[in-house]
Design a protein around this nucleic acid. Structure first.
Lengths: 181, 181
DNA sequence: AAGTTTATTAAAAATATATTTAACGTTTAA
DNA sequence: TTAAACGTTAAATATATTTTTAATAAACTT
């Protein structure tokens, strides 16, 4: 290989590394460890990879790659690919950021809505009990009402978040905010 | 205090605790530690708190409260309040979830867009150099072009994310997705 | 069916993060 | 101007997380 060829190859690698670094650095937002982030960013420029290739590329142990891949699969940033002939499992990075965005945030926001709405429901039941309890003093009733109203008010947000999730899932959001402009 | 009054008070606390638990549990999404999450959730039901009150309420050290408060301030979930007369600093939780949502995600997404777009810009410059380099073999040029196109393609997403941020900041998103329904 | 390759689980080690205690600096009140 | 109150920083401790090495399990080959 000529020297200039080598230089060109190195320059391509350098270019990729800049992007890999940036992607990895911003991926803390997705709640993954730096090494999982690094792995995803590396896979972003590959067609597909086996655990052994990952391990070689990142110079880490195989179990470590295995856990990182699993974590990335959970948030749909990596999917298993079927490769005929090879006994090794192969994995590919989700390269469509819109899909990653959708899966990750919808998953997280739905969890947030579900958990909090459930808790709010139960809490409001308790508060109603207190409000209706004839033994409660006016001061206590006022207190219970205050919290009840605060919770009731917060539901507006969770409903909105649910709507946001629905509009992302259905793709309707792209009518409002087109992908291309 | 009568026994039934005591029972009512306890029931109100129980109701609050259910919500505090749920809020704290889902706050990992916002990248804060469990204790910061716990603190925020506790403050959600208070008008305002001093560091000493926090420390008493959560049974933790004052420096710990200090760090948690700072972290929560960074993502605008807590703000300092001015309290005439008191030497102690007072802090209040942001109780409007729409505002927390806006500040947090806009901040994060803008950072993501900025970092990645900068890296993409630099990487594409490198790749153009390689493509234009007369010493590059056709194979290398093809490779560089492939990565260039992949990066170019990904910009669509970052532009969209930027638009999303803008529509949240301006409030225009609420024309598409109203708060009340 | 025995042996090999691959992935995962378990235990141990290493590392990073969170928390506390102690010290410091600043402000306020006496 | 001294002492107390308050918040923060620094160092040390405790805790949690990540990573590895070693062991196990599963799948395939011969």
């Amino acid at each position: 290989m000529s020297e200039s060829t080598e230089r060109s190859r190195a320059k391509i690698e350098e270019a990729k590394d800049k992007v890999i670094g940036a992607i990895a650095e911003t991926m803390d937002l997705y709640g993954v460890t730096p090494s999982a982030a690094n792995l995803y960013a590396t896979m972003y420029f590959k067609d597909q990879m086996t655990l052994d290739e990952m391990r070689t590329e990142l110079d880490m142990s195989k179990p470590s790659m295995s856990t990182s891949v699993r974590k990335l699969q959970e948030i749909a940033m990596v999917k298993k690919t079927f490769t005929r002939g090879s006994r090794k499992h192969t994995y590919a990075a989700e390269k469509n950021f819109f899909r990653s965005f959708m899966v990750f945030y919808c998953q997280m926001w739905e969890r947030e809505v579900k958990m909090n709405m459930e808790a709010i429901g139960e809490a409001q039941e308790d508060l109603i009990d207190v409000i209706k309890d004839s033994a409660s003093t006016p001061e206590i009733v006022a207190d219970a009402k205050k919290y009840y109203d605060q919770l009731e008010d917060s539901k507006t947000y969770y409903h909105w978040l649910d709507d946001l999730v629905a509009s992302i899932r259905s793709g309707k959001i792209f009518e409002f905010l087109p992908k291309d402009k």
